[in-house]
């Protein structure tokens, strides 16, 4: 019973993610696209919960829904003529686009078909926060610091660009 409920929830979430992701790139109204992007991010957080990665799920909601989408909403609302019919979601490069997507699809399907999927026998960690914190500040401290330096550079750069005008 437990397993079938879990897989039912997984398929529902997966369907929501795929449908809303498609809607993000096809809808005419860019504000609606953004709302579906929120739905996509939230459903991905749901998948993380199913995988017992609660910390990741909470951070996903906090950062993607709370910060990034709100930033995007601001950007959209600050843009003039967002409802203008001249705005389109597609562009002229349809044929190169189809070729690239086709190649990507073939590669992905080959990789999917040729991989043997291993299932870990280990139980999920009950205190994932502590484990993530420890490994971020010991084993992966260098990438962690590099990421923070990149972020602070981006922040300073944005402020300098904004101050110019």
């Amino acid at each position: 019973m437990e397993n079938s409920v879990q897989s039912a929830i997984f398929y529902i979430l997966a369907a929501i993610i795929v449908c809303s992701a498609v809607l993000v790139v096809t809808l005419k109204n860019i504000f609606h696209s953004l709302l579906f992007l929120v739905l996509t991010f939230f459903s991905v957080a749901g998948i993380y919960v199913l995988l017992h990665a609660e910390f990741l799920a909470a951070v996903q909601v906090l950062i993607y829904v709370g910060a990034i989408t709100v930033l995007l909403i601001f950007a959209i609302m600050m843009t003039a003529q967002i409802y203008s019919p001249a705005l389109r979601q597609s562009n002229q490069q349809v044929i190169p686009g189809i070729i690239v997507v086709g190649i990507l699809l073939v590669v992905t399907l080959t990789v999917l078909g040729n991989t043997t999927w291993r299932v870990s026998e280990k139980l999920p960690a009950s205190q994932s926060v502590n484990l993530i914190g420890k490994s971020l500040l010991t084993t992966y401290v260098l990438p962690f610091e590099v990421v923070s330096v990149v972020l602070i550079t981006a922040l300073i750069g944005a402020i300098i660009i904004a101050r110019r005008d």
Binding site: E54, F55, A57, A58, V61, V65, V70
Partner: peptide
């Protein structure tokens, strides 16, 4: 076990709703 982080996370939907 992520209690307070969870509360901070779900309340961010308030901003989305207001916008």
């Amino acid at each position: 076990n992520i209690g307070i982080l969870y509360i901070l996370a779900v309340t961010t939907f308030t901003v989305i709703s207001i916008l």
